[in-house]
Write a protein that binds this DNA or RNA. Structure first.
Lengths: 194, 194
DNA sequence: TCCAAAATCTAGCATTGCTAGTATTTCTAG
DNA sequence: CTAGAAATACTAGCAATGCTAGATTTTGGA
């Protein structure tokens, strides 16, 4: 099981290089700059080779990058959370989340703007999404039906996008994290659900 | 001042029709479906005519749609706010905001993903953005440095995007609005800014 | 060593945003 | 009313993009 044929090995290696090239270029110059011709050049082959690895073409490459992204983001948030509780937990996870989004803008972008519908979503995908959701729920200590986590997630998502779009004052970044901690820490504020 | 020449009148009329066609098609099938050829067909002219109205091409058309969008969104939020205060104010504005985003997905999309940097941002643009920010600040009764409003805005933005991306349970929509009211209503939660 | 299969390339299609150059319409001056 | 100038609009085409069919080379096993 460990010893793959040389062919499989090289195939997998090349697949990695395609994804790395796509990720790198996209984070630097946006997904518009990721062309199939450029990717082919980057791995030293021609365009059709890409379609051997990713029959779905550019979309499938973007999806693959997105999946890697979910794994990374979830792990970094989980590590940031550690055994913290309350505000410190919320702030730590928020900081980690926003940092990931800032450092990998294109990966983050494709993670959320790509349609993860029935066609694309494997069980793996759903599991990864679930894991990401769970770490956020743990951070705010959500023991309800998950609505609070949804809103927390929305806040992180929105703040990260607006920061990168230049719609928020950069100097206030740490204040925003404090604010998130204050608004979303465990003291479940008046569960006035009808 | 009222009586424009026939030419100017028809020019402006056509400009409106271009924007309306773009907005309609984009909200229906996404911006990818808005091609210059389609827009030209929609107004009964050929492609180059578009560039007479919008020298910047498709980008400029999208920007124009975005500007209209900011005016609309701000007005609808302001109307929803009325003279409400506290939770009811937050919830009303949140509901209006999310409704706009849901009903005009493409308009909303271009409002925030387009670079509103120095090149594009006229004073008008900045004024409109400011007005939108202000209504949110009024809704949550932000009397601080605006950080709370930034986070509130982020939450609305993120929730609206995640809802449309199918990442949030549709049935929980009203719960999310309640949650936003609970988390962001005026009772400024522990301004523990360092 | 030779052959079949896998792998790779060449060449090209259709679509996109955009534009140069030409034809046509419209307004104005005489 | 008519001729010329200015505006308006069109034809035709370019370059870039994602993608693919078919030819060609390389590879690995008998």
């Amino acid at each position: 099981m460990a010893a793959q044929s040389n062919r499989q090995q090289r195939t997998e290696e090349r697949r990695r290089r395609i994804l790395a090239a796509a990720r790198e270029r996209a984070d630097a110059d946006g997904w518009g700059a990721v062309t199939t011709r450029h990717l082919a050049d980057a791995i030293g082959y021609t365009q059709p080779v890409l379609y051997g690895h990713f029959p779905g073409g550019k979309s499938e490459i973007m999806l693959a990058v997105a999946l890697e992204g979910f794994v990374d983001l979830t792990r970094q948030c989980r590590e940031a959370l550690g055994r913290k509780r309350g505000r410190r937990a919320v702030e730590a996870v928020a900081a980690a989340y926003l940092r990931f989004s800032r450092e990998h803008p294109a990966v983050y972008e494709v993670m959320f703007q790509l349609p993860i519908d029935a066609r694309f979503a494997s069980d793996d995908t759903r599991a990864e999404l679930r894991a990401g959701f769970d770490v956020l729920a743990d951070a705010i200590g959500d023991d309800g039906d998950g609505t609070a986590t949804e809103v927390f997630w929305g806040a992180l998502h929105g703040v990260s996008l607006l920061e990168r779009a230049g719609r928020m004052r950069p100097a206030q970044r740490s204040h925003r994290i404090t604010e998130l901690g204050a608004r979303f820490a465990t003291n479940a504020p008046a569960e006035s659900r009808s």
